[in-house]
């Protein structure tokens, strides 16, 4: 029975990582109503920025992380400005947005592979500090991931509920056309949401890089788990995504308690199918 505390810890850590991806993904989806497949690749770009700065230029870790987060945010902002804004202007369908984001994802991923090769890299420096928690083991990076998720969630709650920017985001999310006529520059708001969501994605890519490692294609698997978490929790609902992420983390980790770890993805997608069939609106409806 000793394994249960560790399974709980692993589930929480997995949930925290999926939460970070789901938070940014849901923030963007909630405002723009399309599946941004490039979201995961922006996470990878965050990781590779830190890799470049800290390993090639010998930058200290913390400034590298800050630059990495901001750079990922800027990439998200620029992608919106150069691609998605033009599509919004043309009132393109959801399918066009989806395919365009697939194109952006593939192009960015290829660019990362050209610059840094497809090899698996790690960001970690030295041996990881390890803590004992309720009979389970958690590394320092994993503890930071947990802390970051809590801080980002609290920050997003404050931002969306209590600031005027948050009201404009919610208004744009509810009724973009009406938001325009009441004087909200929805393109600017969506641009800022892309920056924010992509910066969160960047941070998740960086932290995953420190926890396990980075590779150009890491974005897709991160994105898929984030999307599953979002759908389980309630697509477009920032808090639902977090709930879905932790639920997914627990189901995945406890699902492989007695069987091979290779079943993890099969279990995750099985859960997705069950939700799509029986509760497509997710746990919390927006």
């Amino acid at each position: 029975m000793d394994i249960i505390p560790q399974l709980v810890v692993n589930s929480i850590i997995a949930g925290a990582i999926y939460s970070m991806v789901a938070l940014g993904f849901n923030l963007i989806y909630g405002t723009t109503k399309f599946f941004n497949l490039a979201h995961g690749t922006v996470a990878a770009i965050g990781g590779y920025t830190v890799f470049y700065l800290s390993k090639s230029l010998d930058f200290p870790v913390l400034p590298s992380v800050i630059v990495g987060v901001l750079f990922a945010g800027c990439i998200g902002y620029l992608v919106d400005k150069s691609v998605f804004r033009a599509l919004r202007k043309k009132k393109a369908s959801g399918m066009v947005f989806l395919v365009a984001s697939l194109g952006v994802m593939t192009a960015l991923q290829a660019l990362v592979a050209i610059l840094f090769s497809s090899q698996f890299q790690t960001l970690s420096v030295g041996s990881a500090k390890v803590y004992q928690v309720f009979g389970g083991v958690i590394t320092q990076v994993q503890a930071i991931i947990l802390l970051c998720v809590l801080l980002i969630m609290a920050g997003l709650t404050l931002l969306l509920r209590f600031t005027r920017f948050g009201k404009a985001v919610r208004a744009t999310s509810d009724e973009e056309e009406v938001a325009k006529i009441v004087g909200i520059n929805t393109n600017k708001i969506i641009g800022r949401v892309f920056f924010l969501g992509s910066a969160i994605a960047g941070l998740s890519g960086i932290l995953v890089g420190f926890d396990t490692g980075i590779e150009p294609a890491m974005g897709l698997s991160l994105l898929l788990k984030g999307v599953i978490a979002s759908i389980i929790g309630g697509i477009g609902n920032v808090y639902g995504g977090v709930l879905g992420a932790f639920l997914l983390g627990f189901i995945e980790n406890f699902g492989i308690w007695k069987i091979s770890g290779e079943w993890k993805d099969a279990i995750a997608f099985g859960v997705l199918l069950i939700f799509l069939l029986f509760r497509p609106q997710g746990l919390i409806k927006k």
Partner: peptide, 20 residues
């Protein structure tokens, strides 16, 4: 009628008074 459905009645009005 087109409102900001998921916002409170007060926020539906406050949002138009938002500075940019």
């Amino acid at each position: 009628v087109r409102l900001f459905e998921q916002m409170s009645v007060l926020d539906n009005v406050l949002v138009v008074l938002t500075e940019r």
